[in-house]
Simulated scan of single mutants.
Amino acid sequence: MIVGILKEIKTEENRVSMTPAGVEILVKNGHRVLVEPGAGAGSEFDDARYEQAGAVMVAGPAEVYRQAEMVLHVKEPQPAEYGMIRPGQVLFTYFHFAASEELTRAMMVSRAVCIAYETLTDQSGGLPLLTPMSEIAGRMAAQEAARYLERSQGGRGILMGGVPGVAPARVLILGGGVVGTEAARIACGLGATVHLLDTSLPRLRHLAEVLPGNCTLLMSSPAAIRELAGQVDAVIGAVLLPGAKAPKLITRELLATMKQRAVVVDVAIDQGGCCETSRPTTHSRPVFEVDGILHYCVANMPGAVPLTSTLALTNATLPYVLALADKGWQRAAQDDPGIGRGVNMVDGRIACQGVAEAFDLPFTLLAALETSGHGP
Results as ranks from 00 to 15, higher is better:
L307F: 07
A21I: 04
L217M: 09
P202T: 04
V265Y: 10
P61F: 08
E24N: 01
G155R: 02
T193S: 02
V27R: 05
L159K: 00
V210W: 14
A98R: 00
L294Q: 03
L127T: 04
S221K: 06
Y117C: 05
G348C: 07
R156G: 10
I115K: 00
A304I: 01
L240R: 06
T277H: 13
S200Q: 12
A106Y: 09
V163H: 10
V265R: 06
A137N: 09
S110A: 15
R226W: 06
R252V: 14
C275K: 03
A192M: 00
T181R: 10
T364H: 09
D336L: 12
T19Y: 10
E8I: 10
G165W: 12
P164N: 15
D291I: 11
R147W: 13
R156W: 07
M345W: 00
L366M: 08
E24M: 01
R252C: 15
E101W: 03
Q123V: 11
N344M: 01
G54I: 05
M301E: 11
M160D: 04
A316S: 15
G88E: 13
P362K: 00
A169N: 00
G54A: 01
M258K: 09
V35G: 03
T93K: 07
A358L: 00
A238F: 09
I5C: 04
Q271F: 03
R139D: 14
A53T: 03
V74P: 15
